[in-house]
Simulated scan of single mutants.
Amino acid sequence: MVSNDTADEIQEYLGVVPSWIEALPDAAADHSWNIVRDLQLEETDLTRREKALVGVGASAAIQCPYCIHFHREEAKLEEVTEAELAEAFALAGDVRYFSTVLHGAEMDYEEFETETESIVDHINEQQAQAADDD
């Protein structure tokens, strides 16, 4: 259960103290709210819109109906379109798919890092060349 001060703060932010807050163990309740408040609700390096897209993609990837519902609603508040939601879900699925392939094939991680570095270098060269052409 959260402390009275934290419950008051949650009420101010959300208009209600959600039941999932009450499901947290006492030792983690206030701290868990602080993470939600500071990372999801407050200003950070990511915009609220970007956070909503990350949230829906991650929610879909872990297949959590609670998180999907919450982050879809969050995305609606940020005027994320259905097309953007579909793309976020597809990207999350793409990451999950290739993670499964890489882990299943037991790809060598050092080789993967080296190949990724090579890809990044190539793309940087292409972008620099395109900028020079302009």
Rank of each mutant, 00 (worst) to 15 (best):
V2K: 06
S3I: 04
A7G: 05
D8Y: 00
D8E: 08
D8R: 08
D8W: 01
D8C: 10
E9L: 01
E12S: 05
Y13M: 12
L14Q: 03
V17F: 07
I21K: 07
E22Y: 04
E22M: 12
A23Y: 03
A23K: 11
D26H: 06
A27T: 03
D30L: 02
H31F: 10
W33R: 08
N34W: 02
D38G: 11
E42P: 06
E43L: 09
T44G: 01
D45V: 08
R48K: 04
R49N: 01
K51L: 07
L53K: 01
G55V: 01
V56T: 08
G57Y: 02
C64W: 00
C64N: 09
C67K: 00
C67G: 00
H69I: 02
F70V: 13
F70D: 09
E73T: 05
E73W: 03
E74D: 15
A75K: 12
E79T: 14
T81Y: 10
E82S: 11
A83V: 08
E84R: 09
L85G: 06
E87R: 01
E87D: 08
A90S: 12
L91Y: 12
L91Q: 11
A92W: 03
G93K: 06
G93S: 10
G93E: 08
G93D: 08
R96T: 15
Y97F: 05
T100M: 13
L102A: 14
L102N: 09
G104E: 08
E106G: 05
D108Y: 02
Y109P: 10
E110L: 13
F112R: 15
I119Y: 11
V120H: 12
D121L: 04
H122W: 00
I123P: 13
A131L: 15
D133I: 11
D134H: 11
D134L: 15
